[in-house]
Write a protein that binds this DNA or RNA. Structure first.
Length: 280
DNA sequence: CGGTTATGGTCAT
DNA sequence: TGACCCTAACCGC
């Protein structure tokens, strides 16, 4: 379930559960075993995220600290159990386990299926951050950096939104939904997108993704189009919360009734309403 | 049980 | 553009 909001939520949860505490680090599955042994018993400083990259900082005694770089990819999960009586034995393929035990309660977190789980230096971490575009969830983000790339590009805005070097943290759900909410035709070239539109899309992404952090799911439907307001059933599956177009191809648009379309853009299925989304 | 799909990304061609 | 990586859920047989 990993778009940028998932990683920010994870950073908050990991920091709350383990920050400033001594942790046991292990790799039950074995693929991170050597690195885990080096980190076992160190103090977890905190966790932070940039776009879809997560960095867990541990105090290994070195000047710059050590970082576990995690990227969940498409199918990875990092489940944080912040308050348990006893840390249970691992089940299935657990690449990385963080755990701590205390009289007032124990905690553990299991990483599975991640595309990246690596021990990196502060410099390596900085390089990843530098390669990334601005992340709407970070207060210090500069949306103008993304605009400079977008307004010079002939590529469709539907592809640019997925480029993590242009903008970091947006994935396939937020891409489709922000285009819908701003009435933008997905194949519009970046250079044809008015600046006012980009400004509004950025502000909207920041707000939507913040809601995603708080709720742990992606909801993008405005109050007047919510199920209760329209007398329709809530979304049947829980993949993305309440959305306008994501994975709704073949179904009627919630606003105008036109059939939602699907097309592969930038290697992923993009969903849109051809009637509501006609502007640049 | 096998095939398909998935909120992602890299590398080779 | 396609192969591939990682894991889990779901579907049809």
């Amino acid at each position: 379930m990993p778009e940028g909001h998932t990683l920010h939520r994870l950073a908050l949860d990991l920091s709350a559960a383990f920050g400033g505490r001594r942790v046991s680090v292990s790799s039950p599955q074995g693929r991170f075993a050597d690195e885990a042994a080096l980190l076992d018993g160190t103090v977890l400083v905190d966790a932070q995220s940039w776009g879809k990259h997560l960095f867990v900082q541990l105090d290994d005694g070195s000047a710059d600290g050590a970082f576990v770089h995690v990227h969940l990819g498409l199918i990875g999960t990092f489940a944080v159990h912040a308050s348990v009586d006893v840390v249970p034995p691992p089940v299935g393929q657990v690449r990385l386990r963080l755990a701590r035990s205390a009289p007032d309660g124990s905690a553990y977190a299991d990483l599975r299926g991640a595309i990246t789980c690596a021990l990196v230096t502060a410099d390596q971490r900085a390089a990843v951050v530098e390669r990334s575009g601005p992340d709407p969830l970070r207060p210090d983000a500069e949306p103008d950096r993304a605009w400079q790339r977008i307004h010079r590009s002939r590529k469709p805005v539907g592809a640019l939104l997925m480029d993590q070097g242009v903008l970091a943290g947006v994935g396939n759900v937020y891409r489709a939904e922000v285009l819908f909410r701003h009435g933008v035709a997905p194949m519009t070239a970046g250079r044809r997108l008015p600046r006012v539109r980009w400004n509004a899309m950025w502000d909207d992404l920041r707000d939507l993704m913040q809601i995603g952090v708080e709720r742990g799911r992606i909801d993008t439907v405005r109050p007047e189009h919510e199920p209760e307001a329209m007398g329709r059933e809530p979304r049947a599956d829980d993949h993305g919360g309440e959305v306008y177009v994501y994975r709704r191809d073949g179904l009627p648009c919630l606003v105008c009734g036109t059939e939602i379309r699907r097309r592969v853009v930038a290697g992923r299925n993009l969903f849109w309403c051809p009637s509501c989304q006609q502007r640049g």
